[in-house]
Computed example of a mutant assay.
Amino acid sequence: MDLYFDFRDGMGEQPLSGLLPYFKLRSFAPDAPNIERELVQLTRFNGLVPTQHPRDIVYKERSIKVEILLDAKIATNFYQYRHEFYDLVVQPFWYYISCDLLPGRRFAVTCDGGFTIPKDKQKNQVSFQVDFNNITGLAESKGTSLSAQNFSSERWFSGMGIQRRDDLQYRFKNKKRFSVFNPGLPINPLQHDYNVLLNAKGKNVTIINHTNNERLKIEADLKKSQQVRNLKQYTVVGNKRLKTSGRLPSLDKGMNEFEIQNTNDFEIVFNTRFYFP
Rank of each mutant, 00 (worst) to 15 (best):
N134T: 07
F157G: 05
P92N: 06
L101H: 07
D167H: 04
S179A: 12
R105H: 10
C99W: 00
R171M: 12
I162N: 08
Q169D: 10
F132A: 05
S98T: 14
L102C: 01
Q163S: 03
N150S: 13
V89P: 02
T116W: 10
G104Q: 07
K123A: 13
V90N: 04
I135H: 09
V109R: 01
L185H: 06
G104I: 03
S153C: 06
N124W: 07
E140R: 09
W94K: 07
L102S: 04
K173Q: 14
G137N: 03
Y95R: 07
G159K: 03
R105E: 02
G159Q: 05
R105W: 11
L185A: 02
K121I: 10
L185G: 02
F115C: 01
E154P: 01
P118M: 06
N134G: 01
P186M: 01
R165T: 10
F151Y: 15
F181E: 02
E140C: 14
G114I: 09
W94T: 15
W156D: 08
T116R: 13
K173M: 11
R155D: 05
P183D: 03
V130E: 04
V126D: 00
I135K: 12
K173C: 03
Y95F: 14
D166W: 01
Y170R: 09
V90P: 01
Q91S: 09
F157T: 00
G159S: 06
W156Y: 15
F172I: 11
I97V: 15
F172G: 04
V126Y: 03
Q163I: 09
V90M: 12
F115I: 02
N174R: 08
R171Q: 14
I117W: 03
R164P: 01
G184H: 10
W94Q: 08
R177Q: 15
T110W: 00
R177M: 14
G184L: 05
D112C: 08
S141N: 08
V90H: 01
C111L: 08
I187P: 11
V89C: 08
G143L: 04
S141I: 03
Q125L: 10
R165Q: 11
I135T: 14
P118K: 05
P118E: 10
R105F: 13
A148K: 15
A148M: 10
E154A: 12
V89L: 05
L185C: 02
S98K: 12
W94D: 15
F93N: 09
I117K: 01
V109D: 03
K123F: 12
N188E: 12
